[in-house]
Structures are given as C-alpha cells and as structure tokens.
C-alpha cells in the first residue's frame, strides 16, 4: 500500500485531504508544521509527500530541498499544493525537484489522478533501476 505524508498548516484542509485519501485507499501520515514534517520525514516510511508552501517553522521549498538532498529518500515523489500564485516560487519548487504542483483551490479528483499517475511512473522507473542493477 502506498503511504502519503501530507504537510499542511490549514487544519481544515489537512483533515479534508486526509479523509479523501484514506477513502481512496492510501495510507496517510500528516504533519501540521515544518517541525513535525521534518520529524516525520526522518522517522517514517512514505512514498509520496504532499506539501504546502507556507507554514510555521519551515517553508515547503525547504521540505523539497531536504528530501532531494537525502539519498535514501530518492524514491519519494513530491506534490506541492499551495495557494501561492507567484510564478517564481512555483518554478523554484520544480527546480528543487518537486514532481507536481497543484494550485488551491484544488480539485479532489485531479489530485487522485495525479497521485495514481505518479505511482505508476514510479513503479515503471523503479523497475528500470532494478533491471539495471541486475
């Protein structure tokens, strides 16, 4: 089962996304600020991170950059979900290695489709890696 870590400081949104994803059959972890996020990022197993950009203690870009600089977390896909309309920030997120970006207000259906797609892509690319090693 795929595990998803949701990092979001808006309580309503966090719970809502958690409920939707749980219903869709994912295993869900949550973090409500940068500190909790870093803690869970270190100590938990997860495959996909959905992160907000602005929150207490850290910003979403730091989350992305930290994940990408950690070689043991290479396999983790990152989706940035934010209401920021500022293009620079979005470009920055992608440059740091985010896989996808969704602007709030989001469409729940779209989020699920994108998640599915990321998981599919990942399994194929992982396969490649495995075959290469052999």
């Amino acid at each position: 089962m795929t595990t998803i870590l949701i990092i979001e400081d808006d309580d309503i949104m966090l719970k809502a996304v958690r409920n939707i994803l749980t219903k869709a059959g994912y295993n869900v972890l949550t973090a409500k600020d940068g500190k909790e996020a870093f803690d869970k990022m270190e100590n938990c197993e997860y495959d996909i991170v959905i992160t907000d950009l602005m929150m207490p203690y850290a910003n979403g870009l730091e989350v992305v950059s930290r994940l990408r600089s950690d070689s043991t977390k290479r396999h983790v896909s990152i989706i940035v979900v934010s209401s920021v309309g500022n293009e620079e920030t979005i470009t920055e997120a992608f440059r740091l290695g985010a896989d996808d970006y969704l602007k709030k207000p989001i469409m729940a259906g779209e989020l699920l489709i994108r998640l599915r797609k990321l998981i599919e892509n990942r399994s194929t690319s992982n396969l490649k890696l495995v075959t290469k090693k052999k």
């Binding site: 808006d10 309503i12 949104m13 809502a16 709030k104 207000p105 989001i106 469409m107 729940a108 259906g109 779209e110």
Partner: peptide, 15 residues
C-alpha cells in the same frame, strides 16, 4: 463559516 473554508480549498466536484 466552515463551508466557506472548505470552498477556499476545493473546487471542482467537491466545491
């Protein structure tokens, strides 16, 4: 109030 908060986060079918 809570409905509005949800609306700010979701559009599409949920919205």
């Amino acid at each position: 109030d809570i409905l509005i908060q949800y609306r700010k986060n979701f559009r599409g079918e949920v919205g």
